[in-house]
Nucleic acid binder design. Structure first.
Ligand SMILES: [Mg+2]
Length: 234
DNA sequence: GCGACAG
DNA sequence: ATCTTGTCGC
């Protein structure tokens, strides 16, 4: 069946994932990073992004594309991957925008049954470091998470830690962080805690979500760069 | 076999 | 994700 072929593709791609041993935190924190999210209206995909550069105001970006497959848990990369890829490529081509050295995506990286979440998929396609940040876990985890900000619990897969449950604000439900590609969990952890914000989700993710939502409602936005239609590649 | 299951 | 107002609790 078609679904089985997609699983096989994921298993094949998972072999290409690179999780470095060394930290590059100082590098990541000194370069622009792009935080992404999507909203849908039928098959239309509306993209929103916050481009963060050190000591500069965030740049708001929106765009539109077409959803990939219907949503199937575990095969999320085939739905959101293509539109995200088209959007990011267009951002890279835009000569007036700084080129991000890291992408943060609303979804999982390798904290996935096949170690192929949407953040990993996008990292592989672009060969750029990516972090997956989800609001719910796909994999089981156990233990008592501390109430203070920064508390974590490991998310395991076949004896290997593939992600973490991370409390970003005291007494607030945690997020699920995992490396996507070309970065390790420790750096991803530090970066998620470094991102500004007083709520469960870092401000940049909230902003990306709101931008995508505003784009879906076709609102007239100021100080937002619209990249228009982004042709999704299968 | 059944239920769960990122967005 | 989306359909959608008020409402309960800190
Ligand atoms: Mg989302």
């Amino acid at each position: 069946m078609f679904i089985q072929k997609l699983h096989k593709l994921q298993a094949q791609w998972a072999k290409e994932v690179v999780i470095p041993q060394e930290s590059r935190l100082t590098y990541f924190l000194s370069r622009p990073m792009l935080v992404l999210d999507i909203q849908y209206e039928g098959e239309k995909a509306y993209l929103g992004a916050s481009l963060l550069s050190p000591n500069q105001a965030p740049i708001d970006l929106i765009g539109q594309s077409q959803a990939g497959l219907a949503y199937i848990p575990g095969l999320f990369c085939f739905r959101e991957g293509p539109p995200l890829l088209a959007f990011v490529k267009k951002i890279f081509q835009h000569k007036a925008l700084p080129r991000p050295a890291l992408l943060i995506i609303d979804g999982h990286g390798i904290a996935h049954p096949q170690k192929l979440g949407v953040a990993t998929w996008l990292g592989l396609r672009l060969q750029i470091p990516t972090i997956g940040c989800a609001k719910r876990s796909l994999l089981p985890y156990h233990g008592e998470l501390g109430e203070e900000r920064g508390s974590t619990l490991p998310v395991m897969l076949q004896g290997e830690q593939v992600g973490e449950v991370l409390r970003t604000q005291e007494g607030i439900n945690p997020l699920f962080v995992s490396a996507g590609h070309l970065i390790h969990l420790e750096d991803a952890h530090q970066i998620m805690l470094y991102l500004p914000g007083a709520y469960r989700l870092p401000d940049a993710l909230r902003q990306a979500d709101q931008l995508a939502r505003a784009a879906a409602r076709k609102e007239r936005l100021e100080r937002v760069i619209s990249l228009g239609e982004c042709e999704a590649e299968f």
